[in-house]
């Protein structure tokens, strides 16, 4: 009997760790960083971190939907590259038109991904092929050259500020990308947790056959999910190119790794059916803060990459251990 009580205590502790472990990790990271380097909590750095999180975070939100749906989207890199080029090249045709075309590039690529995957192609291969095609197209738009020059309205999407608030006794504005990221996260969270379509994403990801026999269309679900992922990758590209006022055809290389890492660190199950948007947001923050603080204390950037890889490894290992014990 006593052993059972013991066991229950232990399982209660592991349960707490399971539910808020990632939040505690973020908190610990922030505290350690603040102690290690006081400049870390300066307003300029905080804004800087938030700005960086927004760009990768928007992609990670879409990636989370895809992974919950039991897929993977490697084509986000290519989408960032091509939609960025399209947006900058079309600047003379007007901001709205350029933005709409860029977003359409992302959404259409996603729909094609989703359609082919619902026909039985492996998500890994399909999106890898799509990524390669899109990257090639990005080079073709300018024959491999970077392009520059944007309208003021477009620049606002990446470099502008919205609202204002007090930090460190100074009045500062919230960068537009941060506002966009917050809105995207909130919308995705509500959609995933409160709408019928959100349920479809979970159930198709958890057991596609059971979902199908319960009247849910696998094809429709996959197409929409990949379309959202593509759309959000394009949105991220707009924020990025607007801030730089330029685009290079290589833009976005390696972004899929950061997005997948954020989702996985946030506890999204690679076998589908499990995951939460706000946990992915925390995962994205952990990755960004980690490289930010390592930068500030002058750690070799190559070491940073090793650290990032190790963090992904450790989270996945812990998750696997939890499942097998």
């Amino acid at each position: 009997m006593n052993a059972e009580v013991e066991l229950r205590k232990v399982s209660k502790l592991t349960k707490i760790l399971e539910t808020v472990g990632i939040e505690l990790a973020l908190l610990a990271l922030i505290i350690i960083s603040g102690v290690m380097e006081p400049k870390f909590i300066r307003s300029s750095n905080v804004i800087n971190v938030l700005r960086q999180v927004s760009v990768t975070g928007v992609i990670a939100v879409g990636m989370t939907l895809v992974i919950i749906n039991n897929g993977i989207d490697l084509s986000v890199c290519g989408i960032v590259g091509l939609s960025g080029m399209v947006a900058i090249i079309l600047q003379p045709q007007g901001t709205l038109f350029a933005v709409a075309c860029a977003l359409a590039v992302g959404a259409v690529s996603g729909v094609i991904n989703g359609f082919c995957i619902s026909q039985g192609l492996a998500p890994f291969i399909m999106t890898m092929a799509m990524d390669t095609v899109l990257r090639g197209l990005a080079y073709l738009t300018s024959n491999g050259q970077p392009v520059a020059g944007v309208t003021d309205a477009y620049k606002f999407l990446g470099a502008g500020y919205m609202g204002s608030f007090m930090l460190d006794g100074k009045v500062i504005g919230l960068p537009t990308p941060v506002v966009i990221f917050i809105l995207v996260s909130l919308l995705a969270h509500v959609m995933l947790s409160r709408t019928p379509f959100g349920r479809h994403i979970y159930s198709v990801g958890g057991n596609a056959e059971a979902a199908r026999l319960s009247g849910i269309s696998i094809k429709k679900t996959k197409m929409i999910v990949f379309a959202i992922s593509g759309f959000l990758a394009a949105l991220s590209s707009i924020m990025l190119t607007a801030r730089m006022a330029a685009c290079d055809p290589t833009l976005g290389t390696g972004y899929n790794v950061d997005a997948i890492a954020a989702a996985v660190i946030g506890g999204t199950s690679m076998s589908g059916g499990e995951g939460k948007i706000y946990k992915t947001v925390i995962g994205a923050m952990i990755i960004t803060i980690m490289s930010n603080i390592l930068n500030m204390v002058n750690v070799n950037p190559y070491v940073q990459q090793v650290v990032k890889g190790l963090i992904i490894f450790v989270t996945v290992y812990a998750d696997n251990w939890k499942k097998t014990h």
Binding site: G206, E209, A210, G272
Partner: peptide, 8 residues
């Protein structure tokens, strides 16, 4: 395999 989504 066909009736339930076990992880939900």
């Amino acid at each position: 395999t066909q009736g339930l989504v076990l992880c939900l």
